[in-house]
């Protein structure tokens, strides 16, 4: 018995079988676990190491290398503001401060209710919407005081 539900185990097995080599599904499986649990924990690493027949420390290496994967839980909504050059020119620093104030947390932290976490992002390929705002990997357009407050109210 693992700590995943039978359905979740099926989904992870799906990633393990999807590509011509089993190992090619590992990063997607990690993304999946991150989405469910908001982080990749010890048990998750153990499980995936077995499933993908890969050393546990290599799985851990991926979790610490890729910014999309985290060891500690993020919020249900991962809110990010880009600080790449074009976004910086458009005032992303001020928008980051606005987001921190609205959520009452600093960049890199999660709200106590676990709803939101806030991250500063390196370029997310949306320089035409500077300063770009992103939630759970989906671009939300440009950040402004108004768009930030609307977004935070809208998310259930």
């Amino acid at each position: 018995m693992s700590h995943f539900s039978a359905e979740q185990e099926q989904t992870l097995m799906g990633w393990a079988r999807r590509y011509p080599y089993r190992i090619m599904g590992l990063l997607e499986a990690l993304r999946q676990v991150q989405e469910w649990r908001r982080c990749v924990g010890d048990q998750d690493e153990e499980y995936l190491a077995k499933l993908f027949d890969y050393p546990r420390n290599h799985v851990h290496e991926l979790v610490t290398f890729f910014p999309g994967l985290t060891l500690r839980p993020t919020g249900r909504y991962r809110v990010g503001i880009c600080r790449g050059l074009s976004c910086a020119l458009a005032g992303s620093a001020a928008m980051c401060r606005c987001m921190e104030k609205s959520l009452g947390i600093k960049a890199g932290e999660t709200t106590p209710d676990g709803k939101f976490s806030f991250e500063t992002m390196e370029c997310i390929g949306a320089c035409d919407h500077a300063p770009a705002l992103i939630v759970n990997d989906k671009l939300q357009g440009a950040a402004s005081e108004q768009s930030i407050s609307e977004l935070l109210e809208r998310l259930p």
Binding site: R18, L27, E28, L30, R31, F66, P67, G68, L69
Partner: peptide, 9 residues
Amino acid sequence: DLMRGAGAY
């Protein structure tokens, strides 16, 4: 087939 990255430039 599609595959996604996880945030590394």
